[in-house]
Each structure stands twice: as structure tokens, then as C-alpha cells.
Design a protein around this nucleic acid. Structure first.
Lengths: 285, 285
DNA sequence: GCATGACGTAAGCTCAACTTTCGTTCTGCG
DNA sequence: CGCAGAACGAAAGTTGAGCTTACGTCATGC
């Protein structure tokens, strides 16, 4: 490809539009420029090629033979380009939005409100996928992940992180358990155990000395806590409703950190659907 | 064609070049810009489309799936455009250069030097066509005409006229005739008679009172003048060699005008071959 | 370990491409 | 006919896309 001896593409585009519409003024309208811009461009192209492409007869224009032949090629060329771009845009727009979430927040906060998102952004298909570990977003094909990060996190290379809300981590249990000696209270063991234990240890409680009950799902764990089966660590935002309703109370454990709910996205170009979802996420907390 | 929602063509071009060459730096070289310009353009395109097109892995780049698909379309599109332009350029370049000339100057000045033009501009085919009348250049398909205009001419609408040389019109004959009573000298009648007569009349000579001999070709007429068959009107530049060699002398006719040899070209775009010929013409006088 | 040649980023410049403005010409209509 | 409407034409003025420049970083090869 000899790019160097192609005329300026905008001149070619102006001529193509002129050929398609048969008038400078109409071409200008199609290109969203004034008629003067089109005339100048076409004259410039003619000068560069050394060929008259357009016969100006009064207030009407007609292509010369050379003009017709060029217009043919340009039509095909620009057509292929436009088709390629349109196709790419279509495919990208239609691709489902893949969201990786912590099970916790997804179940309590996002899923119940998804209908609202669909109402606001019809046509965007969302696939929520619980993904416990910190997966490589790009490699796994996720557009966005909802995560919980301990305050003080730094944005790693290649990722953009937007804080959704900051909330304290609480030790909580059903009211009937709250009066017991803390060491007597059984602790519920949900997913993310290692980190939870670390937090307890930091707060001065030996997790290994506690009685523990394991649960696989955050929903189950919460439910168990409400029913007085044991205490658990949870963010304030998750158990707020239960606290306000008196179904859960806060245990006086000192030294538990604040955590941030964040949206994690791969850095770089972002299609509108992703941006829309990220923006919507920020509104629901 | 929805021009309005097509990304900037230069961004697309930059990406196409990147795809073809597999490197920003190489693409830059092909486009005759710096690598920075290419990176910026590709990033801009990615941002506009909301799609990652190029995977940057250290100092090497590879297209993503989306990138490959777009590159395919762009390759076809730009290919068609480049082919169309190249084809037009070829056809125009190869088209013979059609020159309309006055027989006079063509035979004495241009034809003898045409070999020099071919040497300097190989590959340009020249068709010299004697055309006595002032034809419509554009309509007849002539690229250029060589004409003689009386001084004081003005450039008509739609034509560009370049003066090649200004030269006096002379009445000339063989030496042996010069001593005769001017009214005794027979006048040779070449082409372009009407204008010649008009000049004689203006100079105070009644052309109808003269003895006239008709010749069809300027070559023949010159030859006849040299052999003493009669006098003729000729520009100085045409008979200069004969004057210097003493084969012809100037008759003392007053009031003959100066004339300009000019190159006449249709206004507007001009292919290089025409420009080259016009430029060369100016050098041979 | 140093030269080379990729790519990345940011700041600033420049000119191509555009708008604006005013003219002209052609057509259709009351 | 005279006037409005809609083309194209030309030229001067404006602006931002698309560069260059300048400086980093990182990988490769000698």
C-alpha cells in the first residue's frame, strides 16, 4: 500500500459524497459541513489528481468520465470501511456485559436492583457471574468486577477502580447471642474465610479458639446469623436492614477495618454499555 | 452511507497501517509520520469504538480478534480506494498529450525539438495536431494549444494563456527581390490569409493590389520566399535563421504589430504531463 | 553494560479543513 | 417582471485534529 501517494482522505470523502448526492450542497449536508467546504475539497482533489472530476454547469453538477470511474472505486472502498466499522459497533453493542461479583454483594444489593438497570438501559444484556477469587478480568473476558477491598488499597497497573461506597466491617449476630461471653459465641464460616480470620486476629480475637460452623452461601450464612446460629463478619451495608429491624446486633469488637465496595474495570477503551453499568452501580449504594 | 457515525478516517488509516505492518513504528514510516502519531491515532480509535483493537505486549503489538475483523474490512476498503486512485493516475498519465498548433511554429520550432522533450520526459506521448482555427480546447479534447496572438490580447474566461515569446511581425523576401518597387513584389499567400491581409492593410499596403501566389503549407511558403518567388509576412523568430544567413531580408514595411507566441490551456486542474510540456515549451524559445 | 529500537506519555505547534460572509446565477411563482 | 429560494463561487478568518518534539521505559542483541 502506497499511502504516500494517496490524496488526503477527506478530499476523497468529499468527492465521494458529492458523487453520491449529485450536489455540493447535499454532500455538505451529509458530511455535516457547509457547501463551501465540499467545493474546496473537490477542487483540491481535482488539482492534486490533475483531472477534472466534476462538470459545473450553472447551479448543477455532473461527474466527468474520470469522475465516474473514481466515484465507483471510492464508493466500494468507503462502503467496505463503513460496513466494517458498523459491523464492529453492532457486535460490540450486542455483546453481553459480563460482570464478576462477590456473591455477598451481588445477592443482597445488585441482583434485587437489576430490573431497574434494565429499565433504564433497555437492550443491554447483563451476565452476573459470581467469582470468588480475584480473577484476571481481561483474560477471563469480564467487563467489570464488583469487589470488596480493605481501605487503603491502591489501583494496580492495568485496572481502573472506582469506589462505590465505604462501609465498616462489623461483627454481628442475633440479639439473643449478644449477651454471651464472646468466646462462647459460635462463628459462622462463609466464603472468604482466610481474610475474615485475619481481621478477627487483628481485632484481638483468636479465630482458632472459636467454635465455627461452615456455610457455603452468603445468603445461607446471613440467614443462619439471623436465626441465632452464630456470629459473623459482615459489612454494615449488607446487614443494615437486619440491624435496623433488630434481627441482628453489632458485637463490640474493636479494630475491624473499613472496607470499600469498588467496581473494577480493565483500563483502556470501554464500550458504552460498561460505562453505563458502572455509572448505574454508583447510584445504587 | 452514514458518514456522520464513521470515526475519523485518519484514525482508521493509522490502524490499517498498523495492522498491515504489525508495528506502530513501521506504520509510522509508511504513513510518513512519527510513531507517536500512530499510537495516538490507534488509541483514539479504540476509545471511539470502545474496543481494544491492539494488544500491546512489551515492545511488540498484536491485533485482538475485533482488531483483526476491522483490519480486514479496512484493508479491502482502503485497497479499493487506493486502486481507484492509482488507476485514475495511470490512465491520466498514459493518455497522450494532445497539442493543437499553428502549422507555422510547429514545423519550424516545436517539431525539430520534440526529441529533446521526449528525452527529458520519457513516457509522455505527444500528439501534435495542426489546427488552423481557434478551436474549443476542452470540447475537442486538446490539452494545450500553441497560438499566435497579436499583442494586447486578454485572457478569455476558462482559458489560461502563457506567453512564450514576443516577436515582431516582419515582411520578408529574398534579397534579389528587395530592391524592386514594393508594389512589384509578388506576395505569397499562406494559411491565415485574412489576418495577414489585415496587417498589410494596417501597414498601408493594399493587399488586393498585390500579385499573390498561394501556398498550402508554411514550409512550402518559406521555401518559396527563400527562392525569391515572393514576399511574405512572418514572425522574426521563424525567419531569424534565414535572415542571419542572408537568404531573406526584411522589407521596410512600417506599422506591423508585435505578436506573442502563447501556450493556451483550459483553466482548472492540469495533469503533470501538460504542465511539463508547457514548461518545456517556454524553454525552447 | 551499552547501543539499539521498540512502545508510552505529555506538552505544544501548525496548517488543513472548516466556517463565515458576500456575490452571482438560475429557477419558479404570484 | 420582480422577488424569494436554492444552487455554486471566492476569499478571508478561525480552530482543533493531527502532528512533532522531548523525554521515559523496556526488551533484545552484541
Amino acid at each position: 500500500m502506497r499511502w504516500r501517494d494517496l490524496p488526503s482522505l477527506s478530499l476523497l470523502r468529499a468527492f465521494d459524497a458529492t458523487a453520491r448526492h449529485g450536489s455540493f450542497a447535499e454532500a455538505g449536508r451529509a458530511l455535516n459541513v457547509t457547501h463551501a467546504a465540499v467545493t474546496q475539497a473537490v477542487r483540491g482533489l481535482e488539482a492534486e489528481l490533475g483531472v477534472t472530476l466534476v462538470q459545473r454547469a450553472g447551479r448543477t453538477v455532473a461527474l466527468t468520465e474520470a469522475g465516474k470511474r473514481l466515484a465507483q472505486s471510492l464508493g466500494e472502498g468507503f462502503g467496505a470501511i463503513a460496513a466494517g466499522v458498523a459491523d464492529l459497533r453492532q457486535t460490540e453493542a450486542r455483546r453481553v456485559l459480563r460482570v464478576a461479583t462477590t456473591t455477598f454483594i451481588a445477592e443482597t444489593h445488585v441482583l434485587p436492583r437489576l430490573a431497574d438497570f434494565w429499565a433504564k438501559h433497555p437492550g443491554i444484556e447483563v451476565a452476573m457471574t459470581p467469582s470468588p477469587a480475584s480473577v484476571d478480568l481481561g483474560r477471563e473476558g469480564f467487563d467489570l468486577a464488583i469487589r470488596v477491598l480493605e481501605e487503603g488499597w491502591v489501583e494496580p497497573e492495568g485496572l481502573e477502580i472506582r469506589r462505590l461506597i465505604r462501609t465498616p466491617l462489623l461483627a454481628t449476630c442475633a440479639p439473643q447471642l449478644a449477651d454471651l461471653d464472646p468466646m462462647e459465641i459460635p462463628w459462622l464460616d462463609g466464603p472468604g474465610t482466610a481474610w475474615d480470620r485475619e481481621q478477627l486476629r487483628k481485632a484481638g480475637i483468636d479465630p482458632d479458639a472459636l467454635r465455627k460452623v461452615q456455610f457455603g452461601s452468603p445468603h445461607l450464612e446471613m440467614s443462619a446469623a439471623r436465626q441465632g446460629l452464630g456470629a459473623m463478619l459482615a459489612t454494615e451495608i449488607i446487614c443494615r436492614a437486619d440491624l435496623e429491624a433488630g434481627r441482628l446486633v453489632v458485637l463490640p469488637v474493636e479494630g475491624l477495618p473499613f472496607v470499600d465496595y469498588v467496581a473494577v474495570m480493565p483500563q483502556g477503551p470501554r464500550r458504552p454499555a460498561v460505562e453505563a453499568f458502572a455509572g448505574w452501580l454508583a447510584t445504587i449504594f
